[in-house]
Nucleic acid binder design. Structure first.
Lengths: 344, 344
DNA sequence: TATTGAATTGGGAACGTTCCCATTGCCATT
DNA sequence: AATGGCAATGGGAACGTTCCCAATTCAATA
């Protein structure tokens, strides 16, 4: 029979004092205690291996010190980078993070949301997979601060923090034009669920022509090679210098596979992607990307949440973050001087 | 002023019944209630948007239904895959998972461990970054079930679940021998902290010679190219067909960079890695890997934990899991017939 | 000497649940 | 008609905290 966890009262008894004093010792009022008492409590707590029970603390007014985060796809490196940023920022503010993954399943999303709420999180950071408008609305209404990360949710009036999608598309197009490409194929996963995909797609459709680019668009329901190959093949044979622009990291991966399958050389046919990945610098001449400042985005989300939580003067929060261009060989038309380019 | 979350009592009052009945409604005793009462409670709860407070529930004996997981490096895709497996299995058993990342920092690890304990997790799944023997010992002693994932902790008598490292090394060496390589360079990150790295290294040192291989070893303190380049260059020039074996995914990445920097062709100089990554099939002729069955490992960890938790007949748990060989072009000596090899 | 006040400390209620133990009502027995 | 039992319900204590307020001590002031 292992001894169960020690409680405040046990520590108090052992230290020969009252629960209040022990409570103070572990709270922010430790300096109100005499050094002698502190020492006694310290010793008692240590021999008992006492740790305050945050559940009980959370129950009695003090707040749970928990932040909840909902992630659409935890196996996506971009999402992980966001989680990492959020977790760091949360910890810096004395909050812990409970992360729920939804595997892009709207049904599971509802369940996870309920779970998060049940654990009395003090705030919620949502990277939505579906459009869980109703439950989020309910949550907001019952006083839970809420920040949307990367993706908006229809009708939901909440802060959204993420990439400046318009700027990203503009930067990509500008880079491609500068490199001499004249036609661009934009490839995206199905934009019906994710606002980010819509925003990028729309901006692309608006901006390609004004910049003198011939544009095409490919919407993917699957990332299997077969979904990509025919269009890619046809596009590569079209006249004039042509480049492919990928809407996110998954698509970049799918297209890199496509290039390989078809034996297409990157550069002569351009390839560029939104989202920076480990291997983009590595493959063939290097794949040009737009890196998202994931840590900054995560931090901003937490700051934003805490602004709603605390009534002190709100810190200013940047909602739309600029990407960083990582130019590499895959958008270098002329294959001479394909100089070393490993900058991350 | 947003209305704060509704409580059991409020629901009871609105439904014109007692808290006990409402409690029963949300617990496992719902069938003890008359249909009429059920309906009333249902309606009241719904209009109030009531969700049981799991903190309060956890306080009063019922257990927190929380599992804690400590991850050494959440940005490592392998770790993420483990988290994913664990989370799925936990959810299937009605548990939620609170994940703490330690960024490979033993100091942070202690803090995170304390946090996890404070939230009254019912069990702990530990992928250690340091050797937090003392705190874990204390936790076990105070009755928290505990499973080590992938890495052991000195002196700690607890279940360890992960790859069968010996088998993995054996499989790798066998594959390399079969492919005709005669000398192997084993590259690993510093094995001082991580038991897994030690196990693999030791097995390599034991098994290379008996299989007729000339062996060398490179221990990395940094994954920067400079740490790899000199040794790699020298090794590549050594006589006879030579291959590099990478101890984990990070090392594979570093060496793929190294190959690229030096303009080495994969295959003629072999490259093989433990851990399967998105881009391994993609790069040049494809990098041969040993894939870890991460989902199975995660599931096994949860099962193992729940065995300790429940006193019912324990399910059997596989502790050492076999890897899966993904053969690709990077371990194909003869460069003719570098056939298509994209199998994941 | 009496009074004020600060510094320390302790008692008790409350937080939202669950669970043990009544209590009630009603039907089928004796 | 009285008894027993079962099904449905409710009251109250307890879980481990925090926090309000009161109590005690002791020195300094009037």
């Amino acid at each position: 029979m292992p001894p169960s966890r020690a409680t405040l009262i046990e520590v108090a008894t052992l230290a020969g004092t009252s629960k209040t004093s022990v409570s103070r010792f572990f709270g922010p009022e430790r300096d109100k205690l005499s050094p002698a008492l502190c020492a006694r409590i310290e010793r008692a707590a240590h021999t008992l291996g006492y740790r305050p029970n945050l559940m009980a603390r959370g129950l009695k007014g003090g707040g749970s010190r928990l932040l909840g985060m909902l992630v659409a796809d935890i196996r996506n490196p971009f999402s992980v980078a966001l989680v990492h940023g959020v977790e760091q920022a949360a910890r810096a503010q004395g909050y812990s993070l409970i992360v729920c993954n939804t595997d892009n399943d709207p049904v599971l999303e509802q369940t996870q949301l309920a779970t998060l709420a049940a654990y009395q999180v003090e705030g919620l950071i949502i990277n939505a997979s579906g459009q869980p408008e109703a439950p989020l609305q309910a949550l907001m209404h019952s006083g839970v601060p809420l920040v949307l990360l990367d993706r908006e949710v229809n009708q939901l009036k909440a802060d959204v923090i993420g990439l400046d999608n318009a700027q990203a598309i503009d930067m990509a197009l500008e880079h491609l034009v500068l490199q001499g490409y004249r036609s661009v194929l934009y490839v995206s996963e199905s934009p019906t669920q994710a606002s980010t995909r819509q925003a990028r797609l729309i901006r692309f459709e608006q901006q390609a022509r004004p910049r003198g680019l011939t544009s095409r668009t490919l919407l993917l329901n699957s990332l299997e090679p077969d979904a990509v190959l025919p269009t890619l093949k046809a596009f590569a044979q079209s006249a004039g210098p042509a480049a492919v622009l990928c809407g996110n990291g998954n698509v970049t991966l799918a297209l890199a596979r496509g290039f390989q399958r078809l034996g297409l050389a990157m550069g002569p046919v351009g390839l560029m992607g939104i989202d920076e990945l480990d291997w983009c610098a590595l493959i063939a001449p290097g794949i040009t990307t737009l890196a998202q400042p994931t840590d900054a985005i995560g931090r901003a989300a937490v700051t934003c949440l805490l602004n709603q939580l605390k009534s002190t003067t709100p810190a200013t929060v940047l909602h739309r973050h600029a990407p960083r261009l990582c130019p590499r060989g895959s958008t270098q038309l002329s294959s001479f001087t394909p100089e070393e380019s490993n900058n991350p």
